[in-house]
Write a protein that binds this DNA or RNA. Sequence first.
RNA 1: GGCCACGUGGCGGAAUGGUUACGCAGAGGACUGCAAAUCCUUGUAUACCGGUUCGAUUCCGGUCGUGGCCUCCA
Length: 454
Amino acid sequence: MDLMLYDTFTNSKKKFEPIDPNNVRMYVCGPTVYDYAHVGNARPVIVFDILFRLLQKIYGSKNVTYVRNITDVDDKIIHAANDQNEDIGILTEKTINYFHDDAKYIGALKPTFEPRATEHIPEMIELIEKLISKEFAYVADGNVLFSSNKFKEYGKLSGKNLDEMVAGSRVGVESYKKEESDFVLWKPSKEDEPSWKSPWGDGRPGWHIECSAMSEKLLGENFDIHGGGQDLIFPHHENEIAQSECANNNKFANYWVHNGFVTVEGNKMSKSDGNFVTVNELKDSFQGEVIRLTMISTHYRQPLNWTKDNLNESKKTLDKWYTFLSNFNGDELKDANNDNGIMETLLDDMNTPKAITVLHQKFKDCQSGDKGLVSNFLYSANILGLLNEKPSEWLSWKKENLNINTAQVELLIAQRNEARSNKNFDDADRIRNELDKMGVILEDQGGETTWKVK
RNA sequence: GGCCACGUGGCGGAAUGGUUACGCAGAGGACUGCAAAUCCUUGUAUACCGGUUCGAUUCCGGUCGUGGCCUCCA
């Protein structure tokens, strides 16, 4: 069965055919590093992690190159550094570490390459020079601008056309721009701003050029998949296409894959609206796989409404699965390797919600305890990056996180069981209520009493 | 104003030209001293109006509504 992907360029599902099956190449726009990532930022990390895993399964893990860049020079970073009175390099380094911690927490594999903008300034300058020499770009007041109307196909990804855009635009036009839709490739740096020497004076790159330069360096002029959030379609990806295709006279990316937004009460989650939740702040209450399952419970192109109820539902599901798996030791579940259904759902434009349905079915099927079926269930979940923890560790996670006095709980349980064995059920129930108030729930099973945290 | 996406039960969320998944919650049952957990059973939905069709939730047109992009944004 073929991999089908929804391509923004044609607004339709297309069969995926790699340029080179021995080197399938994907570029995804990564974070701008000035602050903790919120769950909206985390969505593409998970979505394209799923796609990365899928491509590795199909083409072999050695035959897929996944590039996710880090934007470490940008106005927002400069502002944040100024606000916090912090050195830019220290701020970006710190934020990159946060990001890596978060990515690991939500179970994302490391990309093959994670290039940083500041480490590719020479490549960007080279690309800009190429665009100037081909007269797609011009210099004005120390800025270098891309001349949008020189690229006849400008707007082809987002379905916009220049005349309409100008008519409806709310942007103030900078005086040095020939056309309102021209965009900056290089701009002069002010005092105290990061700055690099260039043929056009000391300055720094515009936002879009880094992706064109770095993708070309690591993946070539023409590569398979370019991904990112839907809000990057215009202008970011449009501008990347303009830069790269004009510079190289070659097709840029063959497939454009965009994830939908995370919303909060129906509105897009974003830093500027202040309606965001960071991944980091969820770590106290939810394990990474809970976040991951919540995220992939909705198809990647649909809006995803972020609620605590959804998180709790995912948690409940994973608790149930892990509880069941805790009856087995890991070694006896190693032999399964055919997935029976999960791959089919993913091949159809990464239908993760349907994959989860398949997982529920498999879970039901393996209630008999048949080790082959249990192994298959576990293997299937692993494809989605789920159930990678040891059940015992998963189930004790909350206890360790909540400062519950384990010794006291065990003592009360012993007292209750003493009362129960004397058929003193009033006392037994009183103790259980007491524990309940502490957030501890008891389960009497097979003559043993286990407990868990609410 | 232009462009794009979307409207499925109480909630989440797939799919489909003809019996509408699955999960959560709810209800009933088994189990339990009682619970919890687990298992079994179960009710409820395709925004509105037209059209095509033997038949549409699915295809087409329109209406209404929601969200997004057009400015930094995943």
